[in-house]
Design a protein around this nucleic acid. Structure first.
Length: 601
RNA sequence: GCCCCUGUAGCUCAGAAGGAUAGAGCGACGGUUUCCUAAACCGUAGGUCGGGCGUUCGAAUCGCCUCAGGGGUACCA
């Protein structure tokens, strides 16, 4: 068999498996502050974890707080008395704090604004373009499987979630020092190609295929399902076609290859538009010639066995399956169908093995819809039985539905990603039209804003929820949206431009004494934590939420506090730096989410 | 039937290793442009955190029960 081979593994040339130089992790102000508080309690013989130092809700006059209920119980003391006691004994000299208050069993701490500002500013100035970055990953490898659209089907908004979330996780984990391999696991193999080949044999037309490649392939696919309703024998023909494909039949292979090429060209266009990049694009077909070996090995190891299927399929042949009852999974994993062909799960296992052997990752992330949960449980169990311990983490997300119900390619009930993108840009253009922006720039701004809106709509809410598609929600250009953040960023940029790169480090941070300024610094200080949070939970919206709060507080600052017309030169310089920090943080954060910022808007 | 997810303001959602008076956006109503771009800002109204019971000093958050919606449940992906 001679299926298309992938490009040479350029990654292997990189020396990433060699031990890395130990580098000091940058420690940000908030982490230092938490450590200081745990140290202070330790000096009073009380031991608490860093996570017991809590952020404080608005309305409470404190910056960080430690609830003492647990400790008080252990010591058999009254929480409030303990708090008062500690407040009297703790000395805040040489810390970031200036006030300690016992309130209702909490120890409340307030930052010393000058020391806090100085520290946050120092974090930023250490390397502005790396603000929020860390080396925590220490070069360890993680493979991320994302996007993974199906060949010969249109790129629907269903695949958008995987694409956008996956790319964001790629960016985020890279930023934290991991070596990431983003692999686009194209759905270019499987029974659906049998259907397509079958349909093409019956009704196919070369001219139409050349004219509207993927649209035509979709038409054939839909027609197949239509006709199969009344002619069930078509399903068997499709199976035969897939078998031909899997056994290397030339006619089948040629047409398949053509479909793959046409589709990938179209996908490439969308990826460019969205700024999506992969390190690899190894489709399912890449593993086609590894399946037999895998199945035989599973049989030899006694992991898999031949069994009569539960549901009869007309033949008396047996399937090859892996029983998983010992892992509490009732549904066995079928490796080979009764007609001898492979399944999605077979290829997934082969894929996982390939990834493990090739890149030796710490784990593999699968950004795949929630409806495949069971398959990932099965796969993890099967991999264990086959002797692999690399965790395969299902980063699942809720399905996108239409108000009328599920999307269905077969029934032609889909919303095409391309239409969504075009509509987003169209809406952004309407607003851009009235703005004082040079004509040639307008299209670019509309594109950045429109696409940003689409991405943000997805990345600003938690993955697990299912989404009912709604044009207005998806393409929101005001309120908690990408354009809001982009707008705040352009305000920052515009101020800085007018200041003409004025030197802005010569001042005492203590003059940033207004509450609007302090609040802004607090938001900026929380940015690094948001990244760590997002990475730990695989929830990019932690970053989006933090950026939104930052932009909101900046907007308030911008409206109330003059920067260029500040009361004194020193204050002007201090505020200019604050504006620069805000703008950089928003820009870097959006970049992690895969969202660009326009120069003006 | 069994398993998983979701249910928070009129709508869309944050908040979930238990912590103080549950937060945003949209929509509604009322204000703000001689001043760094109003895709903005300020204010008002709006809540039995689906319901019940329990654990706890303390529950939107944990446990059990229940209702509603979605998904999955051996040869689709």
């Amino acid at each position: 068999m001679s299926f298309s081979r992938p490009m040479p593994k350029r990654h292997l040339a990189r020396p990433w498996n060699q031990p890395r130089k130990k580098t000091e992790l940058p420690e940000y102000t908030l982490t230092r502050a938490r450590k200081q508080l745990t140290e202070l309690l330790k000096s009073q013989e009380i031991s608490i974890g860093l996570d017991e130092v809590r952020d404080v809700e608005a309305n409470i006059a404190a910056d960080l707080a430690i609830p003492l209920f647990r400790i008080a119980k252990q010591l058999g003391k009254n929480p409030q008395e303990l708090a008062e006691n500690l407040a009297n004994r703790i000395n805040l000299d040489n810390t970031l704090f200036e006030q300690i208050q016992p309130v209702h069993g909490y120890l409340n701490f307030k930052f010393n604004p000058a020391r806090f500002s100085r520290s946050v500013i120092a974090d930023y100035l250490r390397d502005p373009e790396s603000y929020g970055r860390s080396l925590a990953g220490n070069g360890r490898t993680i493979v991320i499987d994302y996007s993974s659209p199906n060949i010969a089907k249109p790129f629907s908004i269903g695949h958008l979630r995987s694409t956008i979330i996956g790319q964001a996780l790629h960016n985020i984990l890279t930023w934290l020092g991991y070596r990431i391999i983003g692999d686009n696991h194209l759905g270019d193999w499987g029974t659906q190609f049998g259907k397509l080949l079958c349909a093409y044999e019956l009704w196919g037309n070369d001219k139409e295929l050349a004219r509207d490649s993927t649209g035509y392939l979709l038409k054939l696919y839909v027609r197949f399902h239509d006709e199969a309703k009344t002619k069930p024998e078509l399903e068997n023909k499709a199976r035969e076609w897939f078998k031909k494909l899997e056994t290397g039949d030339k006619q089948a292979h040629d047409l398949w290859k053509r479909a793959v090429q046409l589709s990938t060209a179209e996908f490439q266009h969308i990826y460019e538009l969205l700024g999506i990049k992969f390190d690899e694009s190894l489709g399912e077909s890449f593993y086609a010639n590894r399946l037999k070996e895998l199945i035989n090995r599973a049989l030899e190891k006694g992991v898999a066995c031949r069994e009569k299927p539960l549901k009869p399929s007309g033949t008396d042949e047996k399937v090859i399956l892996i029983p998983l009852a010992e892992y509490g999974i009732d549904t066995p994993l079928i490796l080979e169908k009764s007609d001898g062909t492979s399944l999605y799960a077979t290829r997934e296992i082969a894929t996982a093995e390939y990834r493990i052997h090739t890149w030796n990752p710490e784990k593999i992330l699968y950004v795949v819809g929630k409806e495949q949960e069971l398959y990932f449980k099965q796969m993890n169990a099967a991999l264990k039985l086959l002797g692999h311990n690399t965790p395969c983490v299902h980063v699942s997300f809720g399905l996108i539905r239409l108000p009328q119900g599920r999307m269905s390619t077969r029934e032609g009930r889909v919303i095409l990603l391309e239409d969504v993108i075009n509509e987003a840009i169209r809406r952004a253009k309407k607003i851009v039209a009235d703005r004082k922006i040079p004509e040639p720039e307008k299209d670019k701004v509309a594109r950045i804003v429109g696409i940003g809106a689409i991405k943000y709509a997805d990345l600003s809410q938690s993955r697990t929820r299912e989404v009912v598609f709604d044009w207005d929600k998806m393409l929101a250009l005001d309120g908690d949206s990408a354009p809001y953040l982009q707008y705040a960023h352009t305000r920052c940029r515009s101020i800085l431009k007018k200041a003409d790169n004025e030197k802005n480090s010569d001042f005492d941070p203590a003059i940033l004494a207004r509450p609007e300024e302090f609040t802004l610094l607090c938001q900026i200080a929380r940015f690094p934590d948001a990244i760590v949070d997002a990475a730990a939970t695989y929830e990019p919206h932690r970053i989006a939420n933090r950026l939104y709060k930052l932009a909101r507080d900046f907007s308030a600052f911008y409206n109330k506090v003059p920067v260029l017309h500040a009361e004194t030169q020193k204050l002007r310089r201090a505020r200019l730096l604050l504006v620069q920090m805000t703008g950089t943080t928003i820009r870097l954060g959006l970049k992690l989410l895969g969202i660009e910022v326009p120069d003006q808007m």
